[in-house]
Nucleic acid binder design. Sequence first.
DNA 1: AAGTACCTCAACCGCAACCCG
DNA 2: CCGGGTTGCGGTTGAGGTACT
Length: 274
Amino acid sequence: MGRAPCCDKANVKKGPWSPEEDATLRSYMETHGGAADNWIALPKKAGLRRCGKSCRLRWLNYLRPNIKHGSFTEEEDSIIMRLYNEIGSRWSVIASQMPGRTDNDVKNYWNTKLKKRHSCSNPNLDTTSSSTSMIDYNYQGFQLATSEARPGLAMFSNLPMSSINYGPSPVAQAAPSPNNVSTINFGAVANSWASRESSSINSPVNSPYSFGVTENSRSTSVSCGENAAGGHGWMDLGFGPSWNDLINELLFDHEEVTEISAPNAMAEAKPKGA
DNA sequence: AAGTACCTCAACCGCAACCCG
DNA sequence: CCGGGTTGCGGTTGAGGTACT
């Protein structure tokens, strides 16, 4: 025997709400302080031939005061993108960060607009990797470079732009012995290999694994690499823009891309857990 | 103008979590 | 603790609108 239905399906109307039904529900909710003590019982009390769940959804997603309709702002876009990268499809949590937006709104917006933006900007890139701070350090590295310095690459404006060392730490535990990571440099590491005026992957000065965006007098580059052979696994530093945003900014927003070295490293990059 | 493809978003569904007697 | 009722959530659907041919 299955679960008891939440309402009498035979006597319940489905489909789009009429203006009259909206008015009835709104009027009932307003006379009850905007809250229902029992959604299942509400339709009967309010005189609606609707399922309680349907009433709840209609109120929360459409009729409730202060609901914001209309297009999303760029700020809202970035909030959704950032939170999706951090916590995934927990729409109610994401919506709670944007007053007036409902989880349904956010979910629809993601599915129709942002998901495409999130996944289509580089066909060679596995976009399920959540952020540039997640590095498959199995690869020798890659480097993207533009022909001239791009001071203040916007993507990294909120990241530590000086040498920061991480490790040994949980993020590096996947590294097998004897290739334990002792230090990871993240950021525009002023004294690492990435800051040299070189287009090849060289050994980092201070650490076996290094990742950074660097502007020197001639170029802007983003790169990661290792000097010790045989690193395996993923390390996730827990922050950073998405790969797509980064690649977009570097490749597509700046017209003069002069070099993409070791592209296979990117093409073969796999998401965490893959 | 008509037909078709594509897009949007309100609404539905099933499930899990929560609440309460 | 248990079990039934209720709520909240996320995935999915499909009607209606719009763009394209």
